[in-house]
Nucleic acid binder design. Structure first.
Length: 586
RNA sequence: GCCACUGUGGCUCAGAGGUAGAGCGACUGAUUCGUAAUCAGUUGGUCGGGGGUUCGAUUCCCUCCAGUGGCUCCA
């Protein structure tokens, strides 16, 4: 697609979708200004899968307004207005914008660097401060849809006024738009909240907003993940501990959590003493380390804990299992010497890659640096951040830098996974911490027989087991690989004549340690299969008179591959046990 | 927390200022069946909670709670 650049050039643009959507944002703003002239414009960029525009209008907009705006946009597209661009000096731009009452735009102009051209784009009766590029005519925006209304703070700061944001999406063709909307509809079916309920995995109740209940089947899933994880701890030389959920406030004062994290902490007063429910496991882990003296010969000491942490998250931020108020971390704290840091981080990055690859996840890596609200010396922070950087460089991993997003005690490497509609969620994290060891005055005896302070590393692989399960549900659309499936095999009797044989087969499966259920109801086999299929059970054994007469045959139906024919029961069990113990992906 | 929206039986959803309806599910009975829905009957809701307006509210208003999409914040 050809686009108009703000220096007047007209040429083929690199990112057609982006240009198209940015122009759609202008059409949106134009429609809003036509219908509601008193509205002030803020910003309106193209985003991942659409565009938005932020407006300031007394009372905002309603859903009905949205429909009217969309109709006006269609009119503007039909008018096929020519898009023009021109530059103004800073003074001219300010004078114009102030004259129009566009105070937000004026603020943007004031903040523009000296050397940047201040350009405007005009289409018919609408003009907007903009760096472009844009489509040449409004007709380019033929396939679009306004999708939602939301509040958004001016310049993304909670201290500023909340504006009204209108989201939309646009595509080069109606077909592409429809395909996108259909994809969203498909994604909705994979939503872990829906599948979690339909498959009986977990529930959220009014009695515990943000505190998920794991139902029997979800608990099987969770326990299997944990035992997979325990296998890794063993292989990698970890020790496992359990520390209390509640500890005295003094501990949290000492760790610095009270100063930096108290808004998120639950507290209780008992016998005149304040206790805090742990929002993190690290202080507990440190106390365990401190419980006995350590030699440099023991380092690195790796201590793992599946710790249930509680954090008071603001009500509007909760989201199914992805964002909750209590969750299990597959946490570990590694105590080591300075020269062990790089190797340890490198092996952790590889370990996380191993685990994520096992599930077939793609992930993004971020390096998060010192936040404003943090503790420790600049030198410590610089050293720690540099150590993380070096480890990432040594492995040659691509990563983005997320300035100011570190933990309050240290910088971190974050691993982000995607949900079914492309939102990313932080799961794994490796955090380097020079602060806690000092605050708790922990030590080891070095080769020089002197007392030294170890360096501490916090790490999680799943992150929040709950969040990881949420991602897992969406990733597999509920069709878990056999080793994770709450029910691995469902035994289906064709009629009452094969009931007894079905019972025998079930017994064999149970004896082999396979998670199985039986459906012996007076229903037709098609109906039973349909139910098992909807429950996403990986294997169904269809047992009728033929099998029951043979005495040792089962007809196997796979959830994913359909009818697999007949084989011996023992043969089926042997194959299945192999699949399960290898934790094979579906 | 903020903005907008939503809240009707287990699930999906309809309804309207005059004391609630469908399909699926569940239950009961009949049927005994070969790879994604057998038939019939029955059951099930203080229409999210609390206030108010009204002769009368589930429907209108206020408020609280919860959820959804965002913003902010974060695993």
């Amino acid at each position: 697609m050809r686009a108009l650049y703000n220096d007047g050039r007209v040429e083929e643009c690199e990112d057609e979708l982006k240009v198209l959507r940015h122009t759609a944002a202008h059409v949106l703003a134009q429609a809003v200004k036509r219908l509601f002239p008193e509205t002030k414009l803020a910003i309106g960029p193209a985003i991942e899968d659409g565009f938005y525009y932020d407006f300031d209008r007394e009372g905002g907009f309603s859903e009905e307004d949205l429909a009217a705006i969309e109709a006006e946009m269609k009119r503007i597209v039909k008018e096929n207005l020519k898009v023009e661009t021109y530059a103004l000096t800073r003074e001219e731009a300010l004078e114009y914008l102030e004259g129009e009452g566009e105070t937000y735009k004026a603020e943007l102009v004031r903040d523009l660097p000296e050397d940047v051209a201040i350009t405007f784009y005009r289409q018919g009766d609408f003009t907007d401060l903009c760096a472009g590029p844009h489509a040449l005519y409004t007709k380019a925006v033929k396939a679009f849809k306004l999708t939602s209304l939301a509040g958004a703070y001016w310049r993304g700061s909670e201290d500023n006024k909340m504006l009204t944001r209108i989201y939309g999406t646009a595509f080069p063709s109606k077909e592409a738009l429809d395909a996108h909307l259909a994809m969203l509809e498909e994604a909705r079916k994979r939503d872990h909240r829906r599948l979690g309920r339909d498959l009986g995995l977990f529930a959220l109740m009014d009695e515990g907003p943000g505190f998920p209940f794991f139902l029997p089947k979800g608990t099987v899933l969770k326990n299997n993940l944990l035992s997979y994880c325990r296998g890794i701890l063993e292989r990698e030389g970890y020790l496992e501990i359990c520390t209390p959920i509640m500890l005295t406030q003094d501990l949290w004062l000492q760790s610095g959590h009270w100063d930096h994290y108290k808004d998120n902490m639950y507290t209780a007063e008992v016998d005149g003493q304040v206790f805090c429910v742990k929002p993190m496991n690290c202080p507990g882990g440190i106390l365990v380390y401190k419980n006995e003296p350590h030699s440099y010969r023991e380092l690195p000491i790796r201590i793992g804990e599946f710790g249930l942490v509680h954090r008071h998250e603001r009500s509007g931020t909760l989201h199914g299992l992805m964002r909750v108020r209590c969750f299990t971390q597959d946490d570990a704290h590694i105590f080591m010497t300075r020269d062990q840091v790089t190797d340890e981080i490198k092996s952790l990055v590889r370990l996380i890659d191993e685990v994520y690859s096992k599930f077939g996840f793609k992930y993004k890596v971020e390096l998060s640096t010192r936040p404003e609200d943090s503790m420790g010396s600049d030198q410590d922070w610089e050293d720690a951040t540099e150590a993380l950087r070096q480890a990432l460089a040594a492995i040659g991993l691509d990563y983005a830098v997320n300035e100011g997003d570190g933990a309050f005690y240290g910088p971190k490497i974050d691993f982000h996974l995607e949900d079914s509609i492309g939102r990313t969620w932080q799961c794994g994290t490796i955090q380097l911490d020079f602060q806690m060891p000092q605050r708790f005055d922990i030590s080891y005896i070095g080769a020089d027989n002197g007392r030294h302070t170890p360096i501490m590393l916090h790490r999680v692989i799943f992150g929040s087991v709950e969040r990881f399960i949420g991602i897992l549900i969406e990733h597999y659309a509920g069709k878990f690989p056999t080793w994770l499936s709450p029910v691995q095999v469902k035994v289906l009797s064709v009629s009452e004549k094969s009931r007894e044989y079905a019972g025998q087969v079930l017994g064999k499966l149970k004896a082999a340690g396979i998670r199985c259920e039986i459906d012996n109801r007076d229903e037709k086999i098609g109906y039973k299969i349909r139910e098992a299929q909807l429950d996403k059970v990986p294997y169904m054994l269809v047992l009728g008179e033929k099998e029951s007469e043979s005495g040792d045959l089962v007809a196997v139906r796979s959830r994913d591959r359909g009818d697999m024919g007949t084989r011996t029961c023992d043969g089926f069990i042997a194959g299945l046990l192999g699949e399960i113990s290898g934790r094979e992906s579906a």
